[in-house]
Simulated scan of single mutants.
Amino acid sequence: MDQPVLHMTRIAPLSQPYPEALAPALNALTPDGGEAPMLFRIVGTSERAWQKFTGGSLLDKGPLPMRERELVIFRTAARIGADYEWGMHAALFAERCDIDAGQLEALAKKDAESGGWSDADAALIATVDILIDRRHLDDEEYARISAHFTSDQLLEIVQLAGFYQGVAMIIGTFDIPPEPGTPPIPA
């Protein structure tokens, strides 16, 4: 039987036992008998990077409902080709947020206006597209998104789109492969 080929990342990831300062967080992310996701084990090699990363991750309960948060993350991942993040969020959050396979397909392939979305969802997806393309909303675009979201939520949307582009840079720079069993962005 063929042995699986091991992928070597550019920074050796942490392995168990994890350093005392990071052990509680990494152990909470570790499946029984496994390791925490590779991304976290690589970022965790630098205590400063770990603190900055977890401080900006925005996966806590914030002003944006979980479903909308995940729409931002999925659309950002799809637009920039971030298979690692797409796969992790598809595996961990899509079902919990009532984002079905058809919606995932639409997030990966269609523009915001053709996915059968609510007005708020379409505005959210279009805003992510604009932020990725131009990093600036004109007055009409801002009026559209602000009709559906508060200023606290708008800040969260912008920070999420920016953060996950940064995550993709970490993954690409350090050659972190997708987690086993996670799906790629639909082609």
Rank of each mutant, 00 (worst) to 15 (best):
S15P: 01
D121F: 05
K109C: 09
I176H: 02
G55C: 04
P184M: 10
D152F: 11
A168E: 15
P19W: 12
I170M: 12
Y142A: 02
R75K: 12
P31F: 10
I125L: 14
V43R: 07
Y142Q: 13
D121T: 05
P180F: 09
G116R: 11
E141T: 04
L22N: 01
G44N: 08
R96M: 12
P31K: 10
P184A: 09
S57K: 12
I73D: 03
Y142R: 15
P37G: 01
L131Y: 12
A147Y: 08
Y84P: 00
P63G: 12
E35N: 11
E141M: 08
E179K: 14
G55S: 07
L22V: 03
A187C: 05
P186H: 10
P13E: 04
P186E: 06
R67P: 04
P65V: 10
S15H: 13
P19F: 11
R48S: 05
P19N: 06
H89K: 07
I176Q: 01
A78Q: 03
Y164W: 09
L160P: 07
A112S: 10
L71C: 01
D133K: 00
I185C: 02
W117C: 00
R79Q: 13
L14I: 11
L29Q: 11
F53P: 07
Q103E: 15
D129V: 03
P178G: 04
S57Y: 10
A187P: 15
A49Q: 14
P186M: 08
A36P: 08
L29W: 03
P184D: 07
G81R: 10
Y142I: 03
T150Q: 12
M169C: 02
Y18K: 01
L59M: 13
P186T: 09
T54M: 14
Y142P: 01
V128F: 01
L92F: 08
S146V: 02
